[in-house]
Simulated assay, not measured.
Amino acid sequence: MPLVEAGSWRPSGAAGCRPIDVAAMEVADVMRVTGLPRPEAKIVRGDVAAWLSEMLDGLARIIAFGPENKA
């Protein structure tokens, strides 16, 4: 399992957000939810989105998704 960059998940997790929600949020929403200034909110959102992408890619390698994989 990949790691989120140090400290990037903490503000979002403390606000009760799921990683997929953070990745989909606008920077202004991340700022509102976490109380972070714009530069930090952009970094946090980017770090969480990168982690989520890596996590989903890893899961796709071990779990068959899609209609072509139905039994």
Rank of each mutant, 00 (worst) to 15 (best):
V4W: 00
M55G: 00
A24K: 11
D21A: 12
G7N: 10
S53E: 15
L3Q: 15
P67V: 07
K42I: 03
P67A: 12
R38A: 11
G35D: 05
K70A: 13
V22G: 02
S12D: 02
P39F: 08
D29I: 07
V27F: 00
I62F: 13
E68G: 11
T34W: 00
A15R: 00
L36I: 04
A24Q: 11
L56R: 13
G35Y: 06
V27G: 00
L59C: 13
N69M: 10
P11M: 05
A24T: 05
A50R: 14
D29M: 14
A64V: 09
E68Q: 13
L3A: 14
R38Y: 08
A24M: 12
G13D: 03
A23I: 04
V33P: 02
I43T: 12
V27R: 03
S12E: 03
R38T: 03
N69P: 00
A71N: 09
P39M: 07
A28H: 10
I63W: 11
A28W: 09
R45L: 01
E68D: 12
G16I: 09
W9R: 03
N69Q: 14
V27T: 15
P19V: 09
A23G: 07
I62W: 12
A23W: 01
W51A: 03
R45D: 00
V27I: 14
V4G: 03
K70C: 11
L3E: 15
R61K: 15
G46Y: 03
I43Y: 08
A6F: 15
G13Q: 06
L36V: 02
K42F: 04
V48I: 15
A24I: 04
I62M: 11
E40V: 11
A49G: 01
V30W: 03
G58N: 10
E68H: 12
G58P: 11
R18D: 06
A23N: 06
I43C: 04
P37F: 05
A50N: 08
P39H: 12
L3R: 13
P11H: 08
V22Y: 00
P67L: 08
G16F: 08
E26K: 14
I20C: 12
I62Q: 13
P19W: 02
